[in-house]
Design a protein around this nucleic acid. Structure first.
Length: 259
DNA sequence: ATGGCAAATTGAATTTGA
């Protein structure tokens, strides 16, 4: 089973690119974040026509929104609210007996200080709650994917020094995401597959004049698998080329193959 | 250290992203 995660940054605007991704990646399940539309505006039929007839989605106007689209049946669709907000940042479903959690963790605003920036507090609280949730639950035969908006390792950013005080790579976020992995019994499948030294990015800012020339990326998107199935991960890919397409998302699709 | 872009909503300007 091949599983992909992609922050699509508007599912309606990027339907043609979704088709491109499907052609390139050819996977069973795709988890989307930032669909940015209400369920009544979600293009269910168009996605079914692309071969993904099994869908679970939750969206809201303008912001957030997550979806799981699949070629294989999705069972027991669920979602949770996090950090005291009723927004659309999580959905989960079972495919082939594997529970897949799809998350869109808050970006956290500009200032890495919860006293003056509530968005940063929201992000930290969100991560803490997810950590507790899985620490209690001890997930098995499970996968956690999504735009987690944290680059935990030095090898996940273009400059660990220059991003030290930049939200997504501050010490507390890095520590907390590593704690989430540890306490939940997860394995960082992408990092394990590529090894500790490989520089890995899944996101490049829209603001660079030439994203490839400056190459100031971060690994904000992740695929974790529960430790019991970590040895079943037989492949992993980052579709960096998608960042160079016409009208791209600022995130690229990442995927793993689970035997 | 700063600036730089994109999408959605609303109707030219604002919010949010990261």
């Amino acid at each position: 089973m091949k599983i992909t995660s992609w922050n699509i940054n508007s599912v309606r605007l990027r339907l043609p690119l979704l088709e491109q991704v499907i052609r390139k990646v050819d996977c069973d399940v795709i988890c989307l974040q930032e669909t940015k539309c209400q369920d009544t505006d979600y293009p269910e039929q168009a996605i079914a026509d692309l071969g993904y007839g099994y869908q679970a989605y939750r969206g809201e106007k303008s912001y957030n929104g997550v979806a799981i689209i699949s070629r294989i049946p999705l069972d027991d669709i669920q979602f949770e609210y996090w950090a005291g907000k009723e927004d659309c940042r999580h959905i989960s479903a079972v495919a082939n007996g594997v529970r897949i959690h799809n998350f869109y963790i808050p970006a956290g605003g500009d200032e890495p200080n919860r006293e003056i920036n509530p968005k940063f507090g929201h992000k930290l609280d969100f991560v803490d709650e997810v950590t507790s949730y899985f620490a209690k639950q001890k997930p098995q035969k499970s996968v956690m994917v999504g735009d987690l908006n944290i680059a935990p390792l030095a090898e996940d950013v273009w400059s660990t020094k220059q991003l030290k005080n930049v939200v997504s790579h501050t010490d507390i976020e890095r520590e907390n995401l590593l704690q989430l992995i540890e306490k939940g019994g997860w394995t960082d499948a992408m990092r394990s597959y590529f090894g500790p030294d490989e520089i890995l990015y899944s996101w490049w800012s829209y603001r660079a004049r030439d994203y490839l020339a400056s190459n100031r990326g971060r690994r904000l998107d992740h695929i974790f698998v529960s430790n019991d199935i970590a040895s079943n991960v037989s492949g992993a890919e980052i579709f960096s080329e998608a960042r160079g397409w016409e009208k791209p998302s600022d995130h690229v699709p990442i995927s793993i193959t689970l035997d």
